[in-house]
Simulated scan of single mutants.
Amino acid sequence: MAQISAVEKLFTVIDNTATILKEELACTYLEAVAETGENLFQNTILQEELSELSKKRIEKEYTHVKLDQYAVEEIRKSYQLAALKGMKEATQANHEMTPDAISIFMGYLVSKFTEGWKGFSIFDPAVGTANLLTTVLNQNQSKEIDAFGIDVDDLLIKVAYVSANLQRHSIQFYNQDSLQPLYIDPMDVVVSDLPVGYYPNDLGAASFELHAKKGHSYAHHLFIEQSLKYTKEGGYLFFLVPNHLFTSEYAKELNSFLKEHAYIQGMIQLPLTLFKNEKYAKSIFMIQKKGPNVKAPKQALLANLPKLSNQTAMAGIIKQIDDWFKQEKY
C-alpha cells in the first residue's frame, strides 16, 4: 500500500474538520477552512456553538497531526489544497489562486534579484489567500523580510492570515480596496498576480494617470501604477500579467507610463499548458522603479518557459537566467 505523504495527511485532517464545521456552522467550506486552520494554530476548538459530538469528532482528527513536525512548505501546500477546494465551490470571480508552479518560479526570481540582500520589505496588493506571497517567503527564508498583503475580500484576508499563522510568517494584512490610498510605506519588492478586468469605481480611477478617458479603467493597469507609487526607488516589481498586456486597448498609454517611471527587467512567458484557455495565458513581467543610481539593463531578460515537467528544457532556461544575471547584475 502506498505511503500517505505529509501533505495528504494534513490536508485530510483540514478537509475532514472543515466539512464538519461547514455543516455545524452553516457556513461555506472556505469559511470552515479558515475556522479549522485557526483551531490548529491555537491548538484548541474555538467554536463554542458546536455540539459535543462534533467537538469530539474534530478533536479526534486533530490528534493525527502535530504542526511542529511539518515543514513550512508542507503546511502551505496542505492548506492551499483545502482553500482551492473552497474556491471551486465559491461563485466569486476573484476566487482564483496562483498555480503553485508559477508561485515557486516567482519566488525563485525574487531570490535572484535580491541576491546578497540581508533583508527587504515586500507587499502584494492583491494578496488573496496569500499563497503567492507565502511561497515567495518560503523560498527566501535566509533573509529578514517585512511582508504586507492587501485585499478587498474579507474572507480571503481571513484565509490568508490563518495560512500565514500556520506557516509562522509575520505578515501585516489590510482588508481594503488596493486602489485607494494605502497605509503602508514604500516597499523594496512588490509581487502580485494582478486582477485582470475593469475597475468599477470611475471616480477612484480618475486620480490615476492610467485611467480610461471614457468608460471603466483597466484594473490591472491601475494596479501597476499603484504598486509603483508604493515602491522605493530602485525597488523591483514582479507581476503576473495577461499575455495581451501590450496589445490591448490603452497599451500605448501603459507603455509611455512605464518608460517614464520604470525600467523593464524582463518578461517570461509561461507555458500555455498551465492555462485552461489560451486567451487567459499569462507572463511574469519584471520591472524596476527608476531612481538616481538606477540604470536600465543593456538587454531585458526575455524567455519562454517550457513545460515545467521538461527538466532538460527547464535547466536550459535556468542557465539562460543565470547568464543574464552575471551579465547585468553582478
Results as ranks from 00 to 15, higher is better:
254 L>P: 00
168 R>H: 15
97 M>P: 06
75 I>M: 04
9 K>P: 07
180 Q>I: 06
278 E>C: 06
113 F>T: 03
282 K>Y: 05
156 L>E: 00
84 L>Q: 08
312 T>S: 12
23 E>R: 12
81 L>I: 03
330 Y>P: 01
237 L>P: 04
298 K>C: 08
32 A>S: 07
72 V>W: 07
313 A>R: 14
20 I>Y: 09
148 F>M: 13
139 Q>I: 12
96 E>N: 12
178 S>K: 08
38 E>M: 11
23 E>W: 05
106 M>F: 05
299 Q>N: 14
22 K>T: 13
312 T>K: 15
133 L>A: 02
65 V>D: 04
101 A>N: 13
323 D>T: 11
202 D>I: 13
234 G>R: 04
158 K>G: 11
251 A>Q: 07
260 E>C: 09
211 H>W: 02
55 K>E: 07
231 T>A: 07
285 F>Y: 13
32 A>N: 10
147 A>I: 07
318 I>G: 03
254 L>T: 06
327 Q>L: 14
286 M>C: 00
311 Q>F: 10
319 K>P: 01
295 K>M: 12
44 T>G: 09
204 G>S: 15
306 P>G: 06
141 Q>S: 12
276 K>E: 15
90 A>Q: 14
317 I>E: 03
127 V>Y: 00
67 L>G: 05
202 D>M: 14
115 E>A: 15
133 L>W: 02
222 L>D: 03
329 K>Y: 13
228 L>G: 09
314 M>C: 13
157 I>A: 05
273 T>A: 12
42 Q>E: 15
6 A>Y: 11
291 G>A: 08
106 M>V: 13
205 A>D: 00
322 D>W: 10
161 Y>V: 05
212 A>M: 03
29 Y>I: 01
218 Y>M: 11
289 K>P: 02
27 C>P: 04
183 Y>T: 12
98 T>K: 06
174 Y>A: 09
220 H>Q: 09
185 D>F: 10
85 K>P: 05
87 M>N: 03
191 V>M: 03
71 A>E: 15
87 M>I: 06
129 T>K: 04
299 Q>Y: 10
40 L>H: 06
307 K>I: 08
283 S>L: 02
119 G>Y: 12
246 F>R: 09
82 A>N: 00
133 L>C: 04
247 T>R: 00
140 N>E: 03
279 K>W: 01
324 W>N: 04
232 K>V: 09
241 V>S: 01
289 K>F: 05
297 P>R: 10
38 E>Y: 15
233 E>K: 15
5 S>Y: 10
80 Q>G: 11
106 M>Y: 02
74 E>W: 05
274 L>A: 04
153 D>W: 00
146 D>H: 13
107 G>L: 01
116 G>C: 06
278 E>H: 11
184 I>N: 00
223 F>S: 00
34 A>M: 06
265 Q>F: 06
96 E>G: 08
316 G>Y: 12
116 G>T: 05
260 E>V: 12
265 Q>A: 05
246 F>N: 07
278 E>T: 14
6 A>F: 12
218 Y>W: 11
189 V>K: 06
153 D>E: 07
121 S>Q: 08
55 K>P: 04
4 I>L: 14
41 F>V: 12
131 N>M: 08
121 S>G: 02
330 Y>I: 14
305 L>D: 05
97 M>Q: 13
216 H>W: 08
5 S>G: 04
180 Q>G: 04
189 V>L: 09
87 M>L: 02
177 D>Q: 06
15 D>V: 01
55 K>G: 12
